[in-house]
């Protein structure tokens, strides 16, 4: 480990709506900050190089890979993880659809799936199934075969487009 990575940095950020101040090693990745420093274990490390999407969280409104993002990049950032998205009710309809359609099995990919899907369901247009598949193609699921996930997202999109209550 080089000395640079031994340096510690002071961070202020908002995580799930709560202001956070902490000091972390400069080498700390966002996923480790969430899991290790903040105890937010809902987000998972799967491949640690940005391919599987298990660590996907929302930073300043965009999905990012927690394993590719250094905490040092996030001074002042607003971060949402599955825990906060659950408590705020922002994706309650999506979560309900996932459960009803059995769009999760082991559940390890699910927090990342939900984060990726959140961005899609907040768009105005309802994409085709191919569009949903394309949007979700950065999130790996070994259990479901994806069809149930696509169905659950489609159901949520339709519900929102139809003005259904969440």
């Amino acid at each position: 480990m080089t000395d640079t990575f031994r340096n510690r940095i002071d961070l202020e950020m908002t995580v799930n709506g709560e202001p956070i101040e902490l000091t972390v090693p400069a080498a700390r990745h966002l996923i480790d900050l969430l899991r290790t420093d903040l105890g937010l274990t809902g987000s998972h490390a799967g491949c640690e190089h940005g391919v599987c999407g298990a660590c996907t969280v929302i930073v300043d409104g965009e999905t990012v890979r927690g394993c590719l993002t250094l905490a040092a990049q996030l001074q002042g950032a607003e971060i949402w993880t599955v825990e906060g998205l659950t408590e705020s009710g922002a994706i309650a309809d999506l979560q309900k659809a996932f459960v009803e359609r059995n769009a999760l099995q082991c559940g390890f990919c699910t927090p990342g799936m939900l984060a990726s899907a959140k961005v899609l369901i907040e768009r105005d247009a309802v994409p085709s199934r191919e569009g949903i598949r394309e949007h979700m193609s950065g999130n790996y699921c070994r259990c479901t075969g994806y069809e149930a996930i696509v169905d659950a997202i489609e159901t949520t999109l339709r519900g929102r487009a139809g003005g259904d209550a969440r």
Binding site: T41, H44, N102, L104, G107, T110
Partner: peptide, 19 residues
């Protein structure tokens, strides 16, 4: 019938060993 554990997992409340 729905899976009893799915509601927990979908909220990020799983407890995997690394947690």
């Amino acid at each position: 019938v729905p899976r009893p554990n799915a509601g927990r997992l979908v909220k990020g409340r799983g407890r995997y060993v690394d947690d």
